[in-house]
Amino acid sequence: MSAIAAPDRVAAHLNRGGRWRPFEIAFWLAIVALIFALPSRALLINEILLAGLFALSLDLVLGYAGIVSLGQAAFFGTGAYAAGIIATLGVAEPLIGLVLASVIAGLLGLITAPLLLRGSDLTRLMVTLGVALLLGELANRNEWITGGADGLSLAAKPVLGLFPIDFTGQRNASLYSLAVLFALFVAARRLVQSPFGLSVRALKENPLRANALGVSAARRLIAIYGIAAAYAGASGALVAQTTGLVSLDVFDFHRSADVMLMLIIGGPGYLYGGLIGAAFFIALKDGVASATPEYWEFWIGLPLVVLVLVGRERIGGFIARWARRAALLAMRGAA
């Protein structure tokens, strides 16, 4: 046994998630390239990026902390309305609106998290669902601030006063979304391999033992839920800013359900799952909807069922294996 190098080996093992693998670098560069290569699809790419951010938020909650939620739209919607209202109040800078909106959503997460500490997965599903319904109804009733059924329209000012992100700058909009997504992704990556991240994963794996090691479950779960809520809020705020519209459907059940689907498709618990799932889901929806406008939902449902029945395999895992094999071949070729 190499006794001298052992601590370094342990440290390297614990830090292994911090190394940027070639696959990851290629992944992010490919998105930038796509944004520039397909200006006509900038809207779609933007939608995928923001759905990916939303799914990332659910991944923190479900994939890492093991909290099942069917109400992540509560925070998405809160972020969207907060950004909308902040813009109509005359705060011109989108970045300020974004930060404030996600802080507000995060606070709401912290406030509602204690509701999830007790009970089974089923109660958690019900509670998260209920909170989202409640907020949707609140938004509906408080027309004076939310615009009610008409929604809010906001004319987002240029980011940093330089880059317009409204319909005249769709590429800017997707670059803005990508920048925020990337920053939050890097933060999440750090988070999940930090001591805090370890404790959250441990709580998911075995709460009994985590407790017996001195981990205070309540605090950690509230914290991760709040962080994830802020992420969801950021994605809602970005949707509001880049589409210029907030309507009641931001709180819709289908949003929470869709994002859950995206995450499951891509695979929870490794951060990229949500992004890959979102891309798959939205591209599929877009492709099918333009091919058969009438029956598109059928053609979305079918591959999902097939995926679950036949594959039982996340797409991300498949891509990762394929990439590894390609890298191996490339290495052999080089040698």
Binding site: L14, N15, R190, P195, L198, S199, A223
Partner: peptide
């Protein structure tokens, strides 16, 4: 913790004892 490694599990336990469990921005 079935999906954590022994090294991760032990670092978790030690970190908690030292009160480092709340650290979120440094790698373990």
């Amino acid at each position: 913790f079935g999906n954590l490694t022994p090294a991760e599990s032990l670092c978790l336990a030690i970190g908690e004892r030292l009160g480092h469990g709340g650290r979120a921005l440094v790698s373990a």
